[in-house]
Nucleic acid binder design. Structure first.
Lengths: 321, 321
DNA sequence: TTGAAAGCGTTACCAC
DNA sequence: GTGGTAACGCTTTCAA
């Protein structure tokens, strides 16, 4: 490299890293800096981490499906928090790879920590990553994975508080929307299960309602509504709730008199609908909190994997139920 | 490494990379594969790209602000398309760094191509990246950057077609919402400028309306509406349009009789509002198309930078204007 | 068919 | 203060 500053590579390294252990003469420093600028020199991250034997890279698989505003806010918060702790966050696009194959692809980058949302990894995958030098593997999902720290996101709780609420409001025939879009099962299944659990042992029934996110699908579902006898619906989230509520209203059904509609995620749009949408406010962990957990785990890789419940679900009653 | 398969490192490399130039005996292959599995061996990406002198990494800065459904769809499409061409897409979280500093940080990773949305890079940054071995730099933004391929996203066109539409509908006092949220200026400014341009030389006036994405801010704006004399508003996008339209309606104003409301992005929610929201349908380049452009550029780095207009804007008239 | 060795860009460690 | 040297893990060239 910039040996054409007339100095050795080691000297360059010292100057550019401001190594305090050795003193470099001012003129030399200047020459090095000058040469670096002139040549447009930038250090080679791969070489550096190869030599160092570790990096400060925190790897996250990039979500394959477009993800809601809630989660993307959380993501960018997390990124800046980790950035402040001097980690580099990298979202890695793992195309078609599944499970352990994906884990191996991630391991090739030798990240110091890996954050895996959903059910994208199993115990074997965790083991691969750890052998590859990852000092922390953190999952964000419905259940813990052997060997990894876990941030438990209990989406059943979301469904549960909706079920309990609807029952308390006297509803007995509850429909639950299950989106047909791919990649949402990880959330929709537990939400449905939560409703079921809340209503188990009561006189209320739960009906699963597959629904694609199109006006037509919603209209068809609404057209069948009268015959279904359902008096309430948990619409998966606020966006599906808006879609379905509109279709129900267009069909002449009154919300909430004929049918109660409940969304989830507490998005702005729920407040703007008429009737205002009852929803579930979801409290995700702050990016700062998760960043600190990662940092802890990296500093002390031997520690017992931490398991923490991080999803707060609170029903926000408005006018639609 | 796995020399404990009883063979040399070279042999391992051959086997695992399926190098066709040399023939390795079946038993040896087996032993290597077995040892690799047993040890949980995964190749070291840094070492590989260091030796090879290049990688297949396509780098994109991770958006710092939560980004709309339109753009995230485009992103994931692009990711899979590039994945199919055997590139690895990496979103790199560039925290606070600005301009050339950011470019230097990206260059450290020695990506084969860099995709930069917005105005995140200048000619110098492009030069740094190219010197660092990037064979293609592609910007997605309002204007081209010296030395880089450009996908021109002309958001002025969005504003322009709204301005023209409103004028044709007889509106003469047009408000344009400019979000107060950070990171949106890159879109809101050109959209405003487009409206101005469309109405320049006519008898219509354009008024800038700063608006935060809160109910209260919208209510305040709506309360001032009667005194403003505005008979139309371009609300930046469908979400701001929904917010503002609700506030206007709550204030007793009729849409579109008293005030026409136009959104943009053609989101589902616009179709669900009543009155149905007039909007601008935005056609982004397909991920496949962009992936091919990147691949082209990587294969032929000497070629003249390509400049392509990729943002199609078409007004979708519904009921709100 | 296999093994040995060089070298990619860094940095830590010793001599100078 | 400064400069040479080795080593990180891998691929490739060349020799056995």
């Amino acid at each position: 490299m910039a040996r054409l500053a007339g100095v050795s590579r080691a000297t360059v390294s010292y100057v550019l890293n401001n190594t305090s252990a050795v003193r470099i003469s001012e003129p030399t420093r200047r020459r090095v800096h000058e040469a670096a600028r002139e040549l447009g020199y930038v250090p080679h991250a791969a070489a550096r981490s190869l030599r160092a034997g570790h990096s400060r890279m925190v790897l996250m698989p990039a979500p394959a499906v477009p993800v809601g505003p809630l989660y993307s806010r959380f993501l960018s918060e997390l990124q800046s928090a980790l950035g402040r702790l001097d980690y580099t966050v990298v979202q890695y696009g793992t195309v078609g790879r599944q499970g352990d194959e994906a884990a191996r692809a991630w391991a090739e980058l030798r990240p110091v920590a890996v954050l895996v949302p959903g059910t994208g990894i199993g115990p074997q995958g965790v083991a691969v990553l750890k052998r590859a030098g990852a000092r922390a593997v953190v999952t964000l999902g419905p259940e813990r994975v052997e060997g990894a720290h876990a941030l438990l996101m209990d989406h059943e709780a979301v469904g549960h508080c909706v079920g309990a609420h609807l029952h308390a409001r006297g509803r007995r025939r509850v429909g639950v929307v299950v989106p047909e879009e791919e990649g949402l099962e990880a959330f929709s299944r537990p939400r449905l299960a939560g409703v079921r659990q809340a209503l188990r042992g009561t006189d209320a029934s739960v009906t699963e309602l597959p629904l694609a996110y199109t006006e037509q699908a919603a209209a068809e579902l609404a057209a069948r509504w009268a015959g279904s006898g359902l008096d309430a619906v948990f619409a998966y989230n606020d966006e599906y709730a808006m879609l379905l509520m509109r279709a129900l209203q267009d069909e002449g059904l009154r919300v909430p008199e004929d049918v109660a509609v409940v969304g989830a995620d507490d998005l702005m749009l729920g407040r703007l609908l008429r009737p205002r949408l009852t929803t579930v406010h979801i409290e995700l962990p702050s990016g700062r909190e998760l960043a600190e957990l990662v940092d802890q785990a990296v500093r002390d890789p031997g520690a017992e994997p931490e398991v923490r419940k991080v999803l707060g679900a609170a029903l926000v009653r408005r006018e639609s139920s």
